[in-house]
Computed example of a mutant assay.
Amino acid sequence: MLDMRRMQILRAVVTSGSVTAAARNLGYTPSAVSQQMAALEREAGIALLYRTGRGVRPTDAGRLLTEYATVIGRHAAEAETALAELRAGRTGRVSMRYFTTAGAPLVAPAVAALRREQPGVQVELRLFELDDPVLEVKARRADLALVVGERDRVTVDGIRFVRLLDDRYRAVLPLGHRLAARPVLELGDLAAEPWVAGETPGPCLDPVLDACAAAGFTPDFVVESGDYATAQGFVAAGLGVSLVPELGLAAGHRPDVVVREVRNPEPVRAIQAAVRAGASPLQPALRGLLVALRAAAASATGAAAAASATGAGAEAEAVPGPDVVGSAPPDGAA
């Protein structure tokens, strides 16, 4: 195996034309340079230099190794520069898995901000299809996954959960519903209503079921929609009421439904970023993405609160009260 450091010394000797000049340029003694050249010749198994008076000239083998040493030196310098860029977070690659409702309000602004701050970082985005996207992080197929989980979990099975935001659920009612004039609803007020499920059983539905259980009832799901936009359509058609998280309403809601706060209790789901735990610090690109996600989460929380405060008042004025003819829902509908 050829020693790369000795090849660079050979290049210095050939370039300067003598062992003495190369030693002076490198800060070595001439005898040290000569010893390194002798060792390199033993490794190569062929003579690399021959003397010409006070100087040296390369043999064909020496010229060949000098050319390769030049290329290696250039690549090594490029590698050092690239590594410095990577350490500084100016380059790199990070892979993220996300779920649908986090896409527009969280992922899009976070990636846009990361590109502005670290334009050399490449981000791979995939909408996950697995029940548990944390498996992708464990298997190192992804660096980060956005998940919904328990609010107090920190590290589980080698995965660290970074809390981004608490996503509060809002009641979605048909326009003209008997409860639509109220700006805030008691969750128990919806106990006798038919319900539209905006999600399949799992971590997104669990906060709704837990809150309803705490309020003393089990929701009667008459429709399973599978997504929040479709759920709004079923609600608008008068098939039932629904609870939708604020991120699910981030793109706005239909004009033929009303959105109200709920309390006692208020269902909340915790949105977290799952990353691999360990003693070593996060790579700069991943750390930058986490910072951007936290900023996007803060903005999304503020926007949702403002929209809820302004929207509730405007809708309350537009929605007829329960004493107005036609405000009551038809039989079998909410």
Rank of each mutant, 00 (worst) to 15 (best):
V184L: 00
P30W: 15
V137E: 05
A104E: 05
A32V: 13
L239S: 14
A180Y: 06
R182T: 03
V324W: 08
T200H: 03
Y50L: 05
L130D: 13
A47D: 15
G311L: 09
V154L: 10
A312T: 15
A237N: 05
L125H: 07
R6S: 13
S31K: 11
P329F: 07
A139Q: 06
A236H: 05
A38G: 06
R170M: 13
L282E: 07
A251K: 11
R151T: 00
D60T: 11
A112Q: 12
I9Y: 13
T101R: 02
E80Q: 02
E261L: 15
L83N: 09
V268Q: 08
W195P: 06
R116T: 14
L164R: 14
G198L: 01
E150T: 02
A82F: 05
P207S: 09
E150L: 00
D157W: 08
P183N: 03
P322Q: 10
A88C: 05
S95Y: 05
I72R: 06
D60R: 15
E43W: 04
D3T: 04
D206E: 10
E80S: 10
G89V: 00
D3F: 12
A295R: 10
V162D: 08
G103R: 02
E199T: 10
A12W: 07
V156H: 15
R269D: 13
T100V: 03
G238F: 12
R263V: 00
G120H: 01
M1S: 15
D323K: 07
A171V: 02
A112R: 09
L86R: 04
A39F: 12
R42T: 15
V19C: 07
A197Q: 04
G120N: 06
S308F: 11
D210C: 06
L249Q: 02
A328C: 06
A270V: 00
E117A: 12
T310Q: 15
I159C: 00
R141L: 10
T230Y: 09
T29A: 08
L83R: 06
G188E: 14
L286A: 07
L179I: 04
L239R: 15
G313F: 03
V134L: 05
G278A: 00
T230H: 13
G73R: 01
P255C: 01
E117D: 08
V14S: 00
V94D: 12
L114N: 10
L173G: 08
A192L: 11
L209Y: 14
A112G: 14
A12C: 04
Q122W: 14
G252R: 12
L83W: 01
A197P: 00
L247M: 04
D206W: 03
L49R: 02
V156D: 15
R51V: 00
R93L: 14
V154T: 13
V156K: 13
P201N: 07
D189R: 11
Q232I: 04
L173K: 01
G226V: 06
